[in-house]
Design a protein around this nucleic acid. Structure first.
Lengths: 103, 103
DNA sequence: AAGATAGTTAGGCATATGCTTAACCAATCA
DNA sequence: TGATTGGTTAAGCATATGCCTAACTATCTT
């Protein structure tokens, strides 16, 4: 999933889809790249669970799966929070010089 | 930055650093891979701003930069929130059939 | 001073990634 | 029905990525 978000083109697609659903050619149009290339990116985004799509007639409509995004967010958040606690404790320790030393 | 988090080894390093600071060889020990390889990952993590390090004597100590993590989180959050609003509005629309149509 | 320890640099190799073109299928439209 | 539109598959290519080994530097330790 982070792998999926690692590519600028795929992030652009996710940003575009953030504004609302779109067809494959809608997504391809501003991207200075052939349709098959966009297809591959979409397949990767689908494999990661970030984007889903459905084909009606001959047009495939794509949209974001917010739950998947939420997962990545949680992973990041867990690591960040852990460290911010650590830094806060350090700050407390530095501001309170009379505390007993339990390193 | 997403590129930095895209590799499982680098995520493992970030998880390890989430428990507290560590030296390069601390990080390398559980990783079934040569020290130069770990070094390269660390350089990438440093370039992305996710990890900082400082060398004292002959040992380099590494730690997480929570601000950088927070940035990635915000990007993801913005896209997710946008979509959840959209889905909520859709739900409202479906539950309230007497509303006037302004598509 | 000699050796061990922690890290770093350089060069090389195998695989993965991102893209392209060409050919192809299936719904529409004229 | 034949052309067009939207999407898909396949094959190939250039570059990027992740890893390795070998060689080197700087800092302890004895």
């Amino acid at each position: 999933m982070f792998l999926a978000l690692a590519d600028p083109t795929r992030r652009a697609i996710v940003e575009r889809l953030g504004l609302g659903p779109a067809s494959v050619s809608d997504l391809a149009r501003p991207l200075a790249m052939s349709m098959p290339a966009v297809l591959q990116h979409l397949q990767m985004l689908a494999a990661s669970g970030l984007v889903r799509s459905e084909k009606t007639g001959r047009v495939r409509t794509c949209w974001i799966e917010p739950e998947a995004l939420s997962l990545a967010e949680q992973w990041i958040n867990a690591r960040r929070i852990g460290w911010q606690r650590r830094l806060d404790r350090l700050a407390d320790y530095l501001e309170e010089p009379k505390s007993e030393e339990k390193p």
